[in-house]
């Protein structure tokens, strides 16, 4: 079977694909994973997805966050040449900060509509997904969840007798954050699929065949 070439075919392929395959695709795009076995990437993707979902379930039963980060919205800066930045979480000693880029969320909404997932990704749902995604990163950074993810992935890089040193898997935290956000926002269609669809539009220069690529002014970048 030949690879899908039009944007519509790409959307259809993404709609049919399983989350763990799409997540494995995302991992494969990282230069650190160049040459990794596909089955291994798929196993890591599945483990990270499971971990993110479990994190969401556990989080639902926990009391509210007493030291919530400062959240702000920016109307521009999310659409950069060759990049769509939906949200970012910055961890500093002075305090954590989350920024949501509404121009990028609007772009993502257009992509979701074009892919046929418009009912899932309303403006409010997208915002909640972005905030949940960054909240997951914050949870992974604080309080030992990052180490739990390492154990879940079980990527042994050094083994000396009974001692096993587990290595970091680049991109796995991202997959876990997507799974967490999906569960928290109650989405039928995973943000992993939305991410893959946005990547397809960047490769095809725009969410719809007649659209120009996102080229607004580059926003503030830390």
């Amino acid at each position: 079977m030949s690879a899908p070439t039009t944007l519509a075919e790409q959307y259809a392929r993404i709609t049919r694909a399983r989350d763990e395959d799409l997540a494995a695709d995302l991992l494969a795009l990282t230069p650190t994973h160049e040459g990794r076995d596909r089955d291994r990437l798929r196993a890591w993707a599945a483990a990270a997805l499971r971990f993110g979902e479990r994190m969401a379930d556990e989080d639902a039963g926990e009391p509210g966050d007493t030291a919530a980060p400062e959240v702000s919205e920016r109307a521009t800066g999310g659409l950069r040449p060759g990049e769509v930045l939906l949200a970012e979480f910055v961890h500093r000693s002075a305090g954590d900060r989350v920024v949501v880029y509404t121009d990028a969320l609007d772009y993502a909404r257009r992509v979701a509509r074009a892919a046929g997932w418009g009912r899932d990704y309303t403006r409010a749902a997208l915002r909640e997904t972005a905030l949940s995604h960054e909240h997951a990163h914050r949870m992974l950074l604080h309080g030992g969840r990052g180490r739990s993810l390492l154990r879940e992935l079980d990527h042994v890089v050094l083994s000396l007798g009974p001692l096993r040193l587990r290595g970091h898997v680049v991109g796995a935290d991202e997959i876990a954050a997507h799974a967490y956000a999906r569960r928290r926002a109650g989405l039928r269609r995973s943000p992993v699929a939305l991410t893959a669809a946005i990547a397809a539009t960047l490769a095809h220069r725009g969410p719809e065949p007649d659209r120009t690529p996102p080229r607004t002014s580059p926003g503030e970048c830390p």
């Binding site: 795009l29 230069p31 060759g82 970012e88 979480f89 961890h91 960054e134 946005i198 490769a203």
Partner: peptide
């Protein structure tokens, strides 16, 4: 690193080798 902190994003970049940039 101390000044700028650690940054994690939900961002999508042009896939390598897609022909749309880089």
């Amino acid at each position: 690193m101390r000044r700028k902190g650690a940054r994690h994003t939900w961002a999508v970049r042009v896939p390598a080798g897609s022909g749309a940039g880089g």
